[in-house]
Nucleic acid binder design. Structure first.
Length: 424
RNA sequence: GGAGAGAUGGCAGAGUGGUCGAAUGCGGUAGUCUUGAAAACUAUUGUGCGGCAACGUACCGGGGGUUCGAAUCCCUCUCUCUCCGCCA
Protein backbone atom coordinates (compact mmCIF):
# COMPACT_ATOMS: atom_id res chain seq x y z
CA UNK A 1 0.00 0.00 0.00
CA UNK A 2 0.97 3.61 -0.39
CA UNK A 3 2.36 5.50 2.53
CA UNK A 4 0.14 7.95 4.29
CA UNK A 5 2.80 10.57 4.28
CA UNK A 6 3.12 10.46 0.51
CA UNK A 7 -0.62 10.92 0.06
CA UNK A 8 -0.74 13.83 2.46
CA UNK A 9 2.13 15.63 0.86
CA UNK A 10 1.37 14.87 -2.78
CA UNK A 11 -2.37 14.69 -3.00
CA UNK A 12 -2.85 16.42 -6.38
CA UNK A 13 0.07 14.59 -7.94
CA UNK A 14 -1.29 11.27 -6.69
CA UNK A 15 -4.77 11.90 -8.07
CA UNK A 16 -3.34 12.81 -11.44
CA UNK A 17 -1.02 9.83 -11.56
CA UNK A 18 -3.70 7.37 -10.49
CA UNK A 19 -5.97 8.54 -13.28
CA UNK A 20 -3.46 6.85 -15.62
CA UNK A 21 -4.50 3.61 -13.96
CA UNK A 22 -8.11 4.67 -14.55
CA UNK A 23 -8.58 5.07 -10.82
CA UNK A 24 -10.39 8.09 -9.47
CA UNK A 25 -8.70 8.81 -6.15
CA UNK A 26 -10.21 12.21 -5.45
CA UNK A 27 -12.63 11.11 -2.76
CA UNK A 28 -10.68 8.33 -1.21
CA UNK A 29 -7.59 10.44 -0.60
CA UNK A 30 -9.67 13.11 1.11
CA UNK A 31 -11.20 10.44 3.27
CA UNK A 32 -7.79 9.10 4.12
CA UNK A 33 -6.47 12.49 5.10
CA UNK A 34 -9.53 13.27 7.14
CA UNK A 35 -9.39 9.94 8.95
CA UNK A 36 -5.75 10.45 9.74
CA UNK A 37 -6.45 13.85 11.24
CA UNK A 38 -9.01 12.19 13.42
CA UNK A 39 -6.58 9.48 14.34
CA UNK A 40 -3.95 11.99 15.31
CA UNK A 41 -6.19 14.07 17.51
CA UNK A 42 -7.59 10.96 19.16
CA UNK A 43 -4.11 9.71 19.83
CA UNK A 44 -3.07 13.02 21.39
CA UNK A 45 -6.04 12.80 23.77
CA UNK A 46 -5.41 9.16 24.49
CA UNK A 47 -1.72 9.68 25.18
CA UNK A 48 -2.46 12.47 27.61
CA UNK A 49 -5.11 10.50 29.44
CA UNK A 50 -2.83 7.50 29.68
CA UNK A 51 0.02 9.64 30.94
CA UNK A 52 -2.28 10.90 33.67
CA UNK A 53 -3.32 7.39 34.54
CA UNK A 54 0.23 6.14 34.63
CA UNK A 55 1.42 8.80 37.00
CA UNK A 56 -1.63 8.34 39.20
CA UNK A 57 -0.99 4.61 39.39
CA UNK A 58 2.60 5.22 40.31
CA UNK A 59 1.51 7.58 43.03
CA UNK A 60 -0.90 5.04 44.45
CA UNK A 61 1.87 2.49 44.53
CA UNK A 62 4.12 4.87 46.45
CA UNK A 63 1.38 5.73 48.91
CA UNK A 64 0.68 2.09 49.66
CA UNK A 65 4.36 1.45 50.15
CA UNK A 66 4.73 4.24 52.63
CA UNK A 67 1.66 3.03 54.50
CA UNK A 68 -0.68 5.88 53.61
CA UNK A 69 -3.61 3.65 52.74
CA UNK A 70 -6.25 6.36 53.15
CA UNK A 71 -4.65 8.68 50.66
CA UNK A 72 -4.10 5.79 48.31
CA UNK A 73 -7.74 4.80 48.38
CA UNK A 74 -8.76 8.38 47.81
CA UNK A 75 -6.56 8.48 44.73
CA UNK A 76 -8.02 5.20 43.52
CA UNK A 77 -11.44 6.78 43.37
CA UNK A 78 -10.18 9.16 40.72
CA UNK A 79 -9.08 6.42 38.35
CA UNK A 80 -12.52 5.24 37.34
CA UNK A 81 -13.26 8.17 35.12
CA UNK A 82 -9.86 8.05 33.47
CA UNK A 83 -10.24 4.36 32.85
CA UNK A 84 -13.52 4.88 31.09
CA UNK A 85 -12.27 7.59 28.79
CA UNK A 86 -9.18 5.55 27.99
CA UNK A 87 -11.28 2.64 26.85
CA UNK A 88 -13.52 4.94 24.80
CA UNK A 89 -10.57 6.65 23.15
CA UNK A 90 -8.97 3.30 22.53
CA UNK A 91 -11.98 2.07 20.62
CA UNK A 92 -12.05 5.27 18.61
CA UNK A 93 -8.37 4.83 17.84
CA UNK A 94 -8.54 1.23 16.67
CA UNK A 95 -11.62 2.00 14.59
CA UNK A 96 -9.92 4.92 12.89
CA UNK A 97 -6.78 2.87 12.22
CA UNK A 98 -8.63 -0.07 10.74
CA UNK A 99 -10.80 2.17 8.58
CA UNK A 100 -7.71 3.99 7.43
CA UNK A 101 -5.99 0.73 6.65
CA UNK A 102 -8.97 -0.55 4.68
CA UNK A 103 -8.98 2.59 2.58
CA UNK A 104 -5.25 2.50 1.95
CA UNK A 105 -5.53 -1.08 0.74
CA UNK A 106 -8.01 0.06 -1.89
CA UNK A 107 -5.66 2.55 -3.50
CA UNK A 108 -3.45 1.09 -6.23
CA UNK A 109 0.22 1.87 -6.60
CA UNK A 110 1.18 5.13 -8.27
CA UNK A 111 2.27 4.40 -11.85
CA UNK A 112 5.69 5.54 -12.98
CA UNK A 113 5.62 8.73 -15.12
CA UNK A 114 6.53 6.69 -18.21
CA UNK A 115 3.46 4.49 -17.97
CA UNK A 116 1.25 5.29 -20.95
CA UNK A 117 -2.45 5.92 -20.52
CA UNK A 118 -4.75 3.18 -21.74
CA UNK A 119 -7.63 0.93 -20.88
CA UNK A 120 -6.35 -2.54 -21.62
CA UNK A 121 -3.80 -4.69 -23.34
CA UNK A 122 -4.49 -3.22 -26.80
CA UNK A 123 -2.93 0.01 -25.62
CA UNK A 124 0.33 -1.39 -24.30
CA UNK A 125 3.30 0.16 -26.02
CA UNK A 126 5.59 -2.06 -28.05
CA UNK A 127 9.12 -1.04 -27.11
CA UNK A 128 10.80 -3.33 -29.62
CA UNK A 129 10.31 -6.50 -31.59
CA UNK A 130 13.27 -8.74 -32.23
CA UNK A 131 14.26 -12.11 -33.55
CA UNK A 132 13.48 -13.90 -36.73
CA UNK A 133 9.99 -15.07 -37.51
CA UNK A 134 10.14 -18.78 -38.23
CA UNK A 135 9.37 -20.17 -41.65
CA UNK A 136 6.92 -22.85 -40.79
CA UNK A 137 6.93 -25.92 -42.89
CA UNK A 138 3.68 -26.96 -44.53
CA UNK A 139 2.60 -29.53 -42.02
CA UNK A 140 2.95 -27.21 -39.02
CA UNK A 141 0.45 -27.83 -36.22
CA UNK A 142 -0.26 -26.17 -32.87
CA UNK A 143 1.55 -27.43 -29.78
CA UNK A 144 -1.39 -29.38 -28.35
CA UNK A 145 -1.33 -31.51 -31.47
CA UNK A 146 2.45 -31.79 -31.36
CA UNK A 147 2.14 -32.89 -27.76
CA UNK A 148 -0.03 -35.76 -28.87
CA UNK A 149 1.92 -36.62 -31.99
CA UNK A 150 5.19 -37.09 -30.09
CA UNK A 151 3.57 -38.25 -26.85
CA UNK A 152 5.29 -35.63 -24.72
CA UNK A 153 2.39 -33.94 -22.93
CA UNK A 154 -0.78 -35.80 -22.05
CA UNK A 155 -3.67 -33.49 -21.29
CA UNK A 156 -6.22 -36.30 -21.09
CA UNK A 157 -4.26 -38.14 -18.44
CA UNK A 158 -4.03 -34.92 -16.46
CA UNK A 159 -7.80 -34.67 -16.71
CA UNK A 160 -8.16 -38.18 -15.43
CA UNK A 161 -5.82 -37.77 -12.51
CA UNK A 162 -6.77 -34.27 -11.45
CA UNK A 163 -8.77 -32.20 -13.90
CA UNK A 164 -8.42 -29.68 -16.70
CA UNK A 165 -5.33 -27.52 -16.52
CA UNK A 166 -3.11 -30.13 -14.89
CA UNK A 167 -1.16 -31.69 -17.74
CA UNK A 168 1.10 -34.70 -17.46
CA UNK A 169 4.51 -34.36 -19.12
CA UNK A 170 6.16 -37.59 -20.16
CA UNK A 171 9.28 -38.94 -21.80
CA UNK A 172 11.17 -36.30 -23.72
CA UNK A 173 8.47 -33.82 -22.75
CA UNK A 174 9.27 -34.27 -19.07
CA UNK A 175 13.00 -34.07 -19.73
CA UNK A 176 12.52 -30.98 -21.83
CA UNK A 177 10.62 -29.36 -18.99
CA UNK A 178 13.32 -30.17 -16.48
CA UNK A 179 16.03 -28.98 -18.88
CA UNK A 180 14.36 -25.59 -19.23
CA UNK A 181 14.05 -25.19 -15.47
CA UNK A 182 17.72 -25.96 -14.99
CA UNK A 183 18.72 -23.72 -17.86
CA UNK A 184 16.78 -20.79 -16.43
CA UNK A 185 18.10 -21.31 -12.91
CA UNK A 186 21.66 -21.49 -14.19
CA UNK A 187 21.27 -18.32 -16.21
CA UNK A 188 19.85 -16.53 -13.19
CA UNK A 189 22.53 -17.80 -10.90
CA UNK A 190 25.20 -16.61 -13.34
CA UNK A 191 23.57 -13.18 -13.18
CA UNK A 192 24.07 -13.07 -9.42
CA UNK A 193 20.77 -14.38 -8.10
CA UNK A 194 20.94 -16.67 -5.10
CA UNK A 195 18.85 -19.77 -5.63
CA UNK A 196 16.24 -20.76 -3.10
CA UNK A 197 13.65 -23.52 -2.96
CA UNK A 198 10.69 -22.06 -1.12
CA UNK A 199 7.64 -23.72 0.43
CA UNK A 200 4.82 -24.21 -2.07
CA UNK A 201 2.21 -23.37 0.53
CA UNK A 202 2.07 -20.16 2.50
CA UNK A 203 0.17 -18.91 5.51
CA UNK A 204 -2.23 -16.00 5.64
CA UNK A 205 0.34 -13.45 6.76
CA UNK A 206 2.46 -14.14 3.69
CA UNK A 207 -0.57 -13.82 1.44
CA UNK A 208 -1.24 -10.38 2.85
CA UNK A 209 2.42 -9.46 2.70
CA UNK A 210 2.63 -9.59 -1.08
CA UNK A 211 -0.94 -8.47 -1.65
CA UNK A 212 -2.61 -11.69 -2.88
CA UNK A 213 -4.88 -11.33 0.12
CA UNK A 214 -7.42 -10.03 0.64
CA UNK A 215 -8.27 -8.97 -2.93
CA UNK A 216 -7.21 -12.01 -4.97
CA UNK A 217 -8.52 -14.48 -2.49
CA UNK A 218 -10.42 -16.54 -5.04
CA UNK A 219 -7.40 -16.93 -7.30
CA UNK A 220 -5.46 -19.11 -4.90
CA UNK A 221 -6.13 -22.69 -3.93
CA UNK A 222 -6.89 -22.73 -0.25
CA UNK A 223 -6.35 -25.68 2.07
CA UNK A 224 -9.00 -24.65 4.54
CA UNK A 225 -8.33 -27.29 7.15
CA UNK A 226 -4.89 -25.87 7.80
CA UNK A 227 -5.58 -22.39 6.45
CA UNK A 228 -2.70 -22.54 3.97
CA UNK A 229 -2.63 -21.30 0.39
CA UNK A 230 -0.96 -22.92 -2.61
CA UNK A 231 1.35 -20.31 -4.09
CA UNK A 232 0.32 -18.70 -7.39
CA UNK A 233 3.96 -17.69 -7.94
CA UNK A 234 7.27 -18.06 -6.12
CA UNK A 235 7.17 -14.30 -5.65
CA UNK A 236 4.98 -14.88 -2.61
CA UNK A 237 7.24 -17.09 -0.47
CA UNK A 238 10.45 -15.51 -1.75
CA UNK A 239 9.43 -11.91 -1.11
CA UNK A 240 8.06 -12.91 2.28
CA UNK A 241 11.54 -14.01 3.31
CA UNK A 242 12.01 -10.32 3.95
CA UNK A 243 8.75 -9.59 5.75
CA UNK A 244 9.34 -7.62 8.97
CA UNK A 245 13.01 -7.24 8.19
CA UNK A 246 15.20 -4.17 8.62
CA UNK A 247 18.16 -4.25 6.25
CA UNK A 248 21.26 -2.12 6.04
CA UNK A 249 21.64 0.07 2.96
CA UNK A 250 24.84 -1.76 2.10
CA UNK A 251 22.95 -5.07 1.90
CA UNK A 252 21.46 -3.99 -1.44
CA UNK A 253 20.94 -5.38 -3.93
CA UNK A 254 19.43 -8.60 -2.65
CA UNK A 255 18.77 -11.00 -5.50
CA UNK A 256 16.97 -14.32 -5.31
CA UNK A 257 15.80 -16.80 -7.87
CA UNK A 258 13.48 -19.71 -7.31
CA UNK A 259 11.89 -22.43 -9.33
CA UNK A 260 8.44 -23.45 -8.20
CA UNK A 261 5.29 -25.04 -9.40
CA UNK A 262 2.58 -22.38 -9.45
CA UNK A 263 -1.09 -22.95 -8.76
CA UNK A 264 -3.87 -20.74 -10.03
CA UNK A 265 -7.57 -21.30 -9.94
CA UNK A 266 -8.06 -18.96 -12.91
CA UNK A 267 -11.67 -18.60 -11.87
CA UNK A 268 -13.68 -17.13 -14.69
CA UNK A 269 -11.34 -17.81 -17.60
CA UNK A 270 -12.49 -19.97 -20.45
CA UNK A 271 -12.50 -20.17 -24.23
CA UNK A 272 -9.82 -20.63 -26.81
CA UNK A 273 -7.16 -18.79 -24.80
CA UNK A 274 -7.04 -21.68 -22.42
CA UNK A 275 -6.27 -24.25 -25.09
CA UNK A 276 -3.25 -26.48 -24.54
CA UNK A 277 -0.50 -24.88 -22.49
CA UNK A 278 -1.77 -21.35 -22.82
CA UNK A 279 -3.44 -21.24 -19.43
CA UNK A 280 -3.06 -23.87 -16.73
CA UNK A 281 -3.98 -24.43 -13.11
CA UNK A 282 -0.55 -25.83 -12.36
CA UNK A 283 2.54 -24.71 -14.17
CA UNK A 284 6.25 -24.31 -13.66
CA UNK A 285 7.99 -20.99 -13.39
CA UNK A 286 11.38 -19.66 -12.44
CA UNK A 287 11.14 -16.31 -10.73
CA UNK A 288 13.66 -13.58 -9.99
CA UNK A 289 13.22 -11.17 -7.10
CA UNK A 290 15.29 -8.13 -6.19
CA UNK A 291 15.29 -5.81 -3.22
CA UNK A 292 16.85 -2.47 -3.94
CA UNK A 293 17.59 0.95 -2.59
CA UNK A 294 14.90 3.40 -3.78
CA UNK A 295 17.50 5.39 -5.70
CA UNK A 296 18.52 2.36 -7.71
CA UNK A 297 15.36 0.38 -8.29
CA UNK A 298 14.78 1.57 -11.85
CA UNK A 299 18.34 0.79 -12.75
CA UNK A 300 17.67 -2.67 -11.34
CA UNK A 301 14.48 -2.97 -13.38
CA UNK A 302 16.48 -2.28 -16.54
CA UNK A 303 19.02 -4.96 -15.70
CA UNK A 304 16.24 -7.44 -15.01
CA UNK A 305 14.62 -6.70 -18.37
CA UNK A 306 17.97 -7.07 -20.13
CA UNK A 307 18.59 -10.32 -18.30
CA UNK A 308 15.27 -11.87 -19.29
CA UNK A 309 15.81 -10.69 -22.82
CA UNK A 310 19.19 -12.40 -22.97
CA UNK A 311 17.62 -15.72 -21.99
CA UNK A 312 14.93 -15.49 -24.65
CA UNK A 313 17.59 -14.67 -27.21
CA UNK A 314 19.60 -17.72 -26.27
CA UNK A 315 16.55 -19.81 -27.02
CA UNK A 316 16.30 -18.14 -30.42
CA UNK A 317 12.69 -17.11 -30.09
CA UNK A 318 11.17 -14.06 -31.77
CA UNK A 319 9.89 -11.77 -29.06
CA UNK A 320 8.62 -8.33 -28.35
CA UNK A 321 8.91 -6.14 -25.29
CA UNK A 322 5.86 -4.25 -24.09
CA UNK A 323 5.56 -1.37 -21.71
CA UNK A 324 2.22 -1.92 -20.03
CA UNK A 325 -0.29 0.89 -20.11
CA UNK A 326 -2.07 2.11 -17.00
CA UNK A 327 -5.09 -0.10 -17.49
CA UNK A 328 -3.01 -3.26 -17.83
CA UNK A 329 -0.47 -2.54 -15.09
CA UNK A 330 -1.32 -4.51 -11.99
CA UNK A 331 -2.73 -2.94 -8.85
CA UNK A 332 0.56 -3.20 -7.00
CA UNK A 333 3.08 -2.37 -9.73
CA UNK A 334 4.50 1.03 -10.60
CA UNK A 335 5.98 -0.03 -13.92
CA UNK A 336 5.75 -3.34 -15.74
CA UNK A 337 7.41 -4.69 -18.86
CA UNK A 338 6.01 -7.82 -20.49
CA UNK A 339 7.86 -10.13 -22.80
CA UNK A 340 5.85 -11.96 -25.41
CA UNK A 341 7.21 -14.65 -27.67
CA UNK A 342 5.71 -15.46 -31.01
CA UNK A 343 4.14 -18.84 -31.25
CA UNK A 344 4.05 -19.49 -34.95
CA UNK A 345 1.56 -22.27 -35.39
CA UNK A 346 -1.02 -20.43 -33.30
CA UNK A 347 0.02 -17.22 -35.03
CA UNK A 348 -0.07 -15.53 -31.66
CA UNK A 349 2.06 -13.57 -29.20
CA UNK A 350 2.24 -15.29 -25.82
CA UNK A 351 3.17 -13.56 -22.59
CA UNK A 352 6.09 -15.36 -20.99
CA UNK A 353 7.47 -12.84 -18.54
CA UNK A 354 6.32 -9.87 -16.58
CA UNK A 355 8.98 -7.73 -14.95
CA UNK A 356 7.85 -5.11 -12.47
CA UNK A 357 9.03 -2.51 -10.03
CA UNK A 358 6.70 -2.26 -7.06
CA UNK A 359 8.70 0.55 -5.50
CA UNK A 360 7.74 0.65 -1.82
CA UNK A 361 4.17 -0.54 -2.31
CA UNK A 362 4.79 -4.15 -1.31
CA UNK A 363 7.49 -3.18 1.17
CA UNK A 364 5.01 -1.06 3.09
CA UNK A 365 2.75 -4.04 3.65
CA UNK A 366 5.66 -6.34 4.29
CA UNK A 367 7.27 -3.85 6.69
CA UNK A 368 10.46 -4.36 4.72
CA UNK A 369 12.74 -1.49 5.63
CA UNK A 370 16.37 -0.50 5.62
CA UNK A 371 18.63 1.93 7.39
CA UNK A 372 21.15 4.21 5.81
CA UNK A 373 24.56 3.95 7.45
CA UNK A 374 24.76 6.26 10.48
CA UNK A 375 21.06 7.01 10.35
CA UNK A 376 18.50 5.98 12.89
CA UNK A 377 15.44 6.45 10.73
CA UNK A 378 14.20 3.51 8.71
CA UNK A 379 12.98 3.78 5.12
CA UNK A 380 10.95 1.42 2.97
CA UNK A 381 12.93 -0.69 0.51
CA UNK A 382 11.92 -1.21 -3.09
CA UNK A 383 10.91 -4.63 -4.37
CA UNK A 384 11.03 -5.92 -7.93
CA UNK A 385 10.28 -9.22 -9.51
CA UNK A 386 10.02 -10.91 -12.83
CA UNK A 387 9.55 -14.27 -14.45
CA UNK A 388 12.76 -15.73 -15.81
CA UNK A 389 10.84 -17.50 -17.12
CA UNK A 390 7.38 -19.07 -17.13
CA UNK A 391 7.53 -22.50 -18.73
CA UNK A 392 4.29 -23.45 -20.47
CA UNK A 393 4.11 -20.73 -23.07
CA UNK A 394 7.84 -20.90 -23.67
CA UNK A 395 7.35 -24.60 -24.27
CA UNK A 396 4.43 -23.91 -26.60
CA UNK A 397 6.47 -21.46 -28.65
CA UNK A 398 9.57 -23.68 -28.72
CA UNK A 399 7.58 -26.70 -29.84
CA UNK A 400 5.64 -24.84 -32.51
CA UNK A 401 8.45 -22.75 -33.91
CA UNK A 402 11.00 -25.53 -34.09
CA UNK A 403 8.88 -28.23 -35.67
CA UNK A 404 10.01 -29.70 -38.96
CA UNK A 405 9.34 -32.83 -40.94
CA UNK A 406 11.76 -34.90 -38.81
CA UNK A 407 10.47 -33.76 -35.45
CA UNK A 408 11.04 -30.84 -33.12
CA UNK A 409 14.51 -29.30 -32.97
CA UNK A 410 15.98 -28.41 -29.59
CA UNK A 411 17.70 -24.99 -29.47
CA UNK A 412 21.48 -25.23 -29.18
CA UNK A 413 21.62 -23.66 -25.75
CA UNK A 414 19.36 -26.36 -24.36
CA UNK A 415 21.01 -29.45 -25.79
CA UNK A 416 23.51 -29.77 -22.93
CA UNK A 417 20.50 -29.82 -20.60
CA UNK A 418 18.31 -32.24 -22.55
CA UNK A 419 20.97 -34.60 -23.80
CA UNK A 420 19.14 -34.89 -27.15
CA UNK A 421 18.76 -32.51 -30.06
CA UNK A 422 15.43 -33.63 -31.43
CA UNK A 423 12.04 -34.66 -30.14
CA UNK A 424 10.83 -37.34 -32.51
C1' G B 1 -2.93 -39.00 16.20
C1' G B 2 -1.50 -39.35 22.03
C1' A B 3 1.35 -37.02 26.23
C1' G B 4 4.25 -33.05 28.07
C1' A B 5 7.09 -28.31 27.90
C1' G B 6 7.53 -23.56 26.12
C1' A B 7 6.99 -18.49 23.33
C1' U B 8 10.88 -12.02 26.44
C1' G B 9 15.16 -7.21 22.38
C1' G B 10 19.83 -9.35 16.32
C1' C B 11 20.98 -14.07 19.31
C1' A B 12 21.40 -16.57 24.18
C1' G B 13 18.90 -15.84 28.60
C1' A B 14 17.08 -13.39 33.66
C1' G B 15 12.72 -11.36 35.37
C1' U B 16 6.52 -14.33 38.56
C1' G B 17 1.92 -7.71 40.41
C1' G B 18 4.54 -1.26 41.16
C1' U B 19 10.92 3.49 39.61
C1' C B 20 10.80 -2.99 33.89
C1' G B 21 11.31 -0.97 27.63
C1' A B 22 13.05 -4.84 30.60
C1' A B 23 19.34 -7.60 34.19
C1' U B 24 23.51 -10.19 32.24
C1' G B 25 26.36 -12.38 28.26
C1' C B 26 27.27 -12.57 23.00
C1' G B 27 26.84 -9.80 18.60
C1' G B 28 26.67 -4.69 16.11
C1' U B 29 28.47 0.50 16.03
C1' A B 30 31.89 4.45 17.67
C1' G B 31 36.24 5.48 20.39
C1' U B 32 41.00 4.62 23.49
C1' C B 33 45.45 1.81 23.09
C1' U B 34 48.48 -0.09 18.54
C1' U B 35 52.81 1.00 12.73
C1' G B 36 48.26 -2.02 11.47
C1' A B 37 45.25 -5.91 13.28
C1' A B 38 43.79 -8.92 17.40
C1' A B 39 43.04 -8.62 22.55
C1' A B 40 41.69 -5.39 26.42
C1' C B 41 39.10 -1.12 28.01
C1' U B 42 35.18 2.91 27.45
C1' A B 43 30.69 4.47 25.43
C1' U B 44 26.59 3.39 22.60
C1' U B 45 23.02 -0.02 20.48
C1' G B 46 14.74 -2.27 19.53
C1' U B 47 10.26 -0.62 16.67
C1' G B 48 5.79 2.26 15.68
C1' C B 49 2.89 6.69 16.61
C1' G B 50 2.42 12.06 18.24
C1' G B 51 5.84 16.35 18.86
C1' C B 52 10.53 21.51 15.99
C1' A B 53 12.31 19.60 20.46
C1' A B 54 12.12 18.33 25.54
C1' C B 55 9.30 14.52 25.98
C1' G B 56 4.83 11.54 25.90
C1' U B 57 2.60 6.94 24.44
C1' A B 58 2.19 1.82 22.79
C1' C B 59 4.56 -2.87 22.03
C1' C B 60 7.70 -9.01 26.33
C1' G B 61 3.66 -14.74 20.30
C1' G B 62 -2.07 -12.83 18.92
C1' G B 63 -6.84 -11.53 21.19
C1' G B 64 -9.70 -10.82 25.65
C1' G B 65 -10.10 -10.35 31.14
C1' U B 66 -8.78 -9.27 36.56
C1' U B 67 -6.33 -4.83 38.98
C1' C B 68 -5.41 1.94 40.80
C1' G B 69 -1.21 -0.68 38.29
C1' A B 70 0.35 -6.77 34.19
C1' A B 71 6.24 -9.31 30.76
C1' U B 72 4.48 -11.26 35.59
C1' C B 73 -2.32 -13.57 37.51
C1' C B 74 -6.83 -15.72 34.61
C1' C B 75 -9.30 -17.21 29.82
C1' U B 76 -8.66 -18.19 24.69
C1' C B 77 -6.24 -18.75 19.98
C1' U B 78 -1.81 -19.57 17.22
C1' C B 79 2.94 -21.35 16.81
C1' U B 80 7.48 -24.00 18.38
C1' C B 81 10.06 -27.89 20.87
C1' U B 82 10.51 -32.94 23.37
C1' C B 83 8.77 -38.05 23.89
C1' C B 84 5.46 -42.02 21.84
C1' G B 85 2.82 -43.76 17.34
C1' C B 86 2.76 -43.63 11.92
C1' C B 87 5.83 -42.57 7.78
C1' A B 88 9.14 -40.60 2.37
Amino acid sequence: MLSLKYLQENKEEAIKALSIKNFDATQIIDQVIELDEKRKSTQAKLDNTQAEMNSLSKEIGMLFKSGKADEANAAKAKTGELKESISELNTEMTDAISQLNDLLLKIPNIPHPTVPAGKGEEENVIERTEGEMPNLYEGAIPHWELAKKYNIIDFELGNKITGAGFPLYRGKGAIFQRALINFFLDENRKAGYEEVIPPLMVNEASGYGTGQLPDKDGQMYHATEDNLYLIPTAEVPVTNIYRDVILKAEDFPIKNTAYSACFRREAGSYGKDVRGLNRLHQFDKVEIVQLQHPDKSYEALDTMVAHVESIIKKLELPYRLLRLCGGDTSFTAALTFDFEVFSAAQDKWLEVSSVSNFESYQANRLKLRFKEKNEKKTQLAHTLNGSALALPRMVAALLENNQCAEGIRIPKALIPYTGFDMID
